[in-house]
Design a protein around this nucleic acid. Structure first.
Length: 950
RNA sequence: GCAGGGGUGGCGGAGCUUGGUCAAACGCGGCAGACUCAAGAUCUGUUGGCCAUAGGCCUGCGUGAGUUCAAAUCUCUCCCCCUGCACCA
């Protein structure tokens, strides 16, 4: 048994005492690894350990490869979540209290969490402790928090640069808004953490007959405008006439929607209008001029869109159903004929309806046809109509072809953009924003609305020059795994204006508007560079950290003496900071989960390009998959979140690290499972036992099997090193950790007992385990009699001389003899009920090798036969037969490496092993000398087997 | 809807870049045996399916087509799943 707790504590203390991971500027090449700093409002669960752990493995690996590797860490506390957290605690929110309890946060601590500062300090302490216990090789002297005043100075300087480059702009922007609290609301501010999803819609104006007024209809499908037959309102809803943006015209919409719309435009309500009055009006289709009645629609909601709906019965199941119901009730005074605007093959995406086989009765009214193929009718419940709507909408936008005049043959999305553009251009429509997932409730209980904020500051990632520069630099960057490149390219392209100033939250004040706080992702785009000097600045008064200091240190502008003089910072320190930055920030690796590609990581690249010289731009970004718990995604609702500290306590840091970090390659999710971690513990113990038993082995002469073990070791080192360089951790650790144990077992079974060989083998394994299992590695390394830290040792180097393909092939041959013979023996036993007494292994003659080699070389039967003609012992008839067989798989024929004698020796040496595996005698024979009838069947590296029964 | 990723045994997942030597490395689970009074742990063997029975054959990589002497791998089609979509960490 390995006492993980004990060895973890022991080595963590030893590393700390010896300051093993404290990075100082030196002659060695530097390598700096950073991971996205954790946000301080949640305790870590085992899933969090993957990203930080992957970064640690890289830092530890690079250290072994001769780099001066640095792994700093800080904490993120800016933004609103900590404030929201404190508020929830203050309100006695049970959900959050329960959650904290699953992480063993004591009640008296929870009670103190009404204070945001306390929350931050508590989680900084706890998270730091977890990182320590996990064995991360972090230089803790450099730790800082995003709310630290000296870091704010740095952020202010950064924004000065962005501003000077013209990357900060001001404008209008839609946000989720609580009318009660008068605040922008994001996900953290809503009940059940719902993100307010803002979507842009078009509201079409329908001129009301006989009035200087318009009906305003919000719609997602302006392209169906020529199919509009009427408008719908809700009879029970209140309507208003109002003025928008002072254009002097009257607009009709629901009272509720006017209340919402006033956050987006200058809306002045003129008077209330009874719904019945609305029904008396008629209006005109702005495109076709058709006269449209206003009818009651059962499904119309006053608080959605504008409360007035344009009806397209040909393409909208709800509209069709509403008209049919009116007709049934006898309330439809005039015939309304659906107008089809596009063609589509109905039911194409349904698995139980084969393409073209859906045969609805009325092809000219798709909305009805969709109800038909779903076996529904206009009286169906809303959910059914909703389903039909989604299906129709999807198929039409996917495969539909417009037939409406002027848009013939266009796809629906194409037509939508065109129609929308035309309507807007002619002033027949306005754009408005809606909450797609309404109603969203603010934590205060009020419904969230969309507000257009008009004095919003943005970082303009849409700036052409900046975008181009970033785009072209992406090509030079190393991305792991490389397939994230597509996502990065898309993100760099897509990212545009990003609102940067917020009214609330912790953080740095926005320099261009001191009433605002810099949004919390935007203050964390170049913070990693600050680690290079953070420990040096801890004693410096904040007010001394003027822009010219940062300009000098990070951009090389000005000179040290002047900077020292104007800031009051010690001259030597100024110089030291500059050196530190320039030394550490050349070769870097940035780590996170892939969900940050579309925001943080892309902003990270952009901002580096804006601020630094090219040589300090990011070199590598590593993103890793998530961690599943027993096959399920970890989530509060499933209750399967395992706190990181629990995992470490229960399984030990190293088994957990191996499971999570080396358990899968970067892009895939890794799976945490109790069983798997226990399997890892067993293997670690096998290695420990092997080392403990080393002195029971001899140190005699090298035997064939020892060469085999060295050869396997060499292959392993070679393969693992390549995989590690690509950070393919699972690929690296299968040979290091799993195959090695299998090979050691085979070595022993094969009769290997050379203490030196095993020691060499295990020593290399122990060293290669260091990055991922540092504590066990240190422990075993010292058990092996070494005195240095494994953490500071060199990574094993592949030695080509150790590689021995011939011995490996011969050992593989022995295994295949065992496999084949096993089958035959089992068969004999079954058929004859007799046990095998002796296995004859008959090694093929040399002329057969010559024949195979000639075939491999000549690729021609005739020439190959000529080549062996007259050779010793050759049987031309058999040769022709063999050549004929080989010819069928000509491309697969390879030259054989060994002679008959060599092959014979190989099998002969493995004979005791083979005998033991088969539980019978083994006789190895040369083909020429064998008396067996089966001797002729032997082929090079495929000896003939003959089982002699009892 | 848009964008990105994916679909391979009972399960997690290799293999796809560079077509053949390869279907399934490695792990989990299952089965059989050893050890044990027994259980657990451990060790050994076995494990896609089917038909065979002297070391073999057939069939299989979401669907359908195509290119090729040859396709899990290349091209196209369709279906399905996951993730993200902005001021939010």
């Amino acid at each position: 048994m390995i006492d993980y707790k004990e060895i973890e504590a022991k080595w963590q203390k030893a590393w700390e005492d010896a300051r093993v991971f404290e990075g100082e500027v030196s002659e060695k090449p530097s390598y700096m690894v950073t991971a996205a700093w954790p946000y301080v409002n949640t305790p870590l669960h085992i899933g969090h350990l993957r990203t930080f752990g992957t970064a640690d493995v890289l830092a530890r690996y690079k250290r072994m490869r001769g780099f001066n590797a640095l792994y700093p860490m800080g904490f993120h506390a800016t933004g609103t979540p900590v404030l929201a957290f404190a508020k929830r605690i203050k309100n006695g929110d049970k959900e959050i209290v329960e959650e904290l309890k699953t992480f063993h946060v004591p009640e008296q601590e929870i009670a103190k969490m009404t204070d945001p500062v306390y929350i931050a300090s508590y989680f900084i302490k706890e998270t730091g402790n977890v990182f320590m216990r996990a064995g991360f090789s972090i230089d803790w002297r450099r730790q800082f928090v995003s709310t630290d005043p000296f870091f704010s100075k740095f952020v202010e300087w950064q924004f000065g640069i962005l501003n000077s480059k013209g990357y900060l702009t001001k404008g209008k922007h839609p946000v989720g808004w609580c009318p009660n609290e008068n605040n922008a609301v994001g996900m953290h501010d809503t009940q059940h953490d719902v993100e307010p999803e803002i979507e842009q819609e078009v509201a079409v104006k329908f001129k009301v007959d006989g009035e200087d007024a318009y009906m305003l209809c919000a719609t997602y499908r302006p392209e169906t405008i020529s199919g509009v037959t009427n408008l719908f309102v809700n009879e029970k809803e209140k309507y208003v006439a109002c003025n928008i943006g002072g254009d002097g015209k009257r607009y009709y919409m629901s009272k509720a929607s006017a209340g919402v719309l006033k956050f987006q435009a200058d809306v002045a309500v003129l008077e209330e209008v009874d719904a019945q009055k609305m029904l008396e009006k008629t209006c005109a289709n702005p495109v076709t001029g058709a006269k449209l009645p206003v009818l009651p629609g059962f499904f119309v909601k006053g608080d959605l869109g504008t409360g007035v709906v344009m009806s397209v019965p040909a393409h909208a199941p709800f509209d069709y159903a509403a008209l049919e119901r009116l007709r049934k009730e006898g309330r439809l005074t005039q015939e309304i004929k659906p107008i089809k605007v596009l063609d589509v093959e109905i039911g194409r995406s349904l698995s139980d309806v084969k393409a073209g086989e859906a045969k609805p009765s009325q092809m000219d009214v798709p909305a009805f046809a969709y109800l038909e193929i779903l076996h529904a009718n206009p009286d169906a419940i809303d959910d059914m109509l909703e389903f039909a709507t989604k299906l129709e909408y999807r198929e039409e936008s996917h495969w539909g072809k417009m037939i409406a005049k002027g848009y013939e043959g266009m796809s629906e999305p194409e037509a939508r953009e065109k129609v929308k553009g035309e309507l807007l251009a002619k002033g027949d429509a306005i754009e408005l924003y809606v909450l797609q997932n309404a109603p969203v409730l603010c934590r205060c209980g009020y419904a969230v609305v969309v507000k257009i904020v008009d004095d919003q500051w943005f970082i303009n990632y849409g700036n052409e020059k900046w975008k181009e520069e970033t785009k072209s630099y992406m090509k030079e960057m190393r991305l792991l795994p490389d397939k994230t490149r597509n996502a990065f390219d898309a993100a760099v392209d897509w990212i545009d204006l990003r609102a940067v100033a917020r009214a609330q939250g912790l953080g740095t004040r926005f320099p261009l508007d001191n009433t605002k706080i810099i949004e919390s992702l935007s203050d964390s785009t170049i913070y990693m560079s600050f680690y290079t000097v953070s420990h040096l600045l801890k004693g410096v008064a904040t007010e001394k950290l003027k822009p010219e200091f940062f300009e000098f240190v990070f951009r090389g502008a000005g000179d040290a003496e002047k900077v020292a003089a104007s800031t009051g910072i010690d001259y030597a320190l100024v110089k030291r900071c500059k050196e530190a930055f320039e030394y550490w920030y050349r070769d870097t690796s940035r780590h996170s989960a892939p969900d940050l590609i579309y925001n943080h990581l892309t902003m990270y690249v952009y901002n580096h390009i804006a601020v630094f010289d090219k040589r300090y731009w990011p070199k590598q970004i590593v993103t890793n998959g998530f961690v599943l718990s027993e096959g399920e995604k970890m989530s509060k609702s499933l209750g399967n979140i395992v706190p990181a500290i629990d995992g470490i306590e229960k399984y030990g840091a190293d088994p957990l690290r191996i499971n999570e970090i080396a358990g899968s390659d970067l892009p895939s999710d890794s799976e945490f499972s109790d069983k798997a971690v226990r399997g890892i513990q067993e293997r670690l113990e096998y290695l420990q036992n092997t080392i403990a038993d080393l002195d029971k082995l001899e140190s005699g002469e090298m035997k064939r099997i020892d060469y085999w073990l060295y050869s396997k070791l060499n292959d392993k080192v070679d393969y693992a090193t390549k995989a590690m360089d690509a950070l393919e951790l699972r690929s690296a650790y299968i040979p290091i950790f799993y195959d090695s144990v299998l090979e050691l077992r085979r070595y022993i079974a094969r009769g290997g007992n050379n203490g030196i060989a095993v020691r060499d083998f295990v020593s290399a394994i122990v060293l290669m385990l260091q990055p991922v299992a540092p504590h066990v590695s240190e422990e075993l390394w010292h058990m092996l009699g070494n005195e240095n830290f494994a953490s500071l040792e060199k990574w094993p180097v592949a030695n080509e001389e150790m590689s021995n393909a011939k011995v490996e092939a011969e050992e593989a041959l022995a295994d295949s003899v065992v496999d084949d013979a096993k089958q035959v023996i089992a068969l004999m036993q079954k058929k004859m009920g007799k046990k095998a007494k002796r296995l004859h292994v008959i090694v093929a003659s040399d002329w057969k090798r010559a024949l195979v080699n000639a075939m491999a070389k000549e690729k021609n039967v005739g020439r190959a036969l000529d080549a062996v003609k007259g050779a010793q012992g050759v049987n031309q008839e058999l040769a022709a037969k063999i050549a004929g067989t080989l010819a069928k798989r000509m491309n697969e024929v390879r030259e054989t490496g060994s002679t008959q004698l060599e092959e014979f020796d190989g099998v002969e040496e493995a004979a005791p092993y083979i005998a033991k595996q088969l539980d019978c005698d083994v006789a190895v024979e040369m083909e020429e000398k064998s008396k067996s009838q089966r001797a002729g069947r032997s082929m090079p590296m495929k000896p003939s087997l003959d089982v002699e029964l009892e």
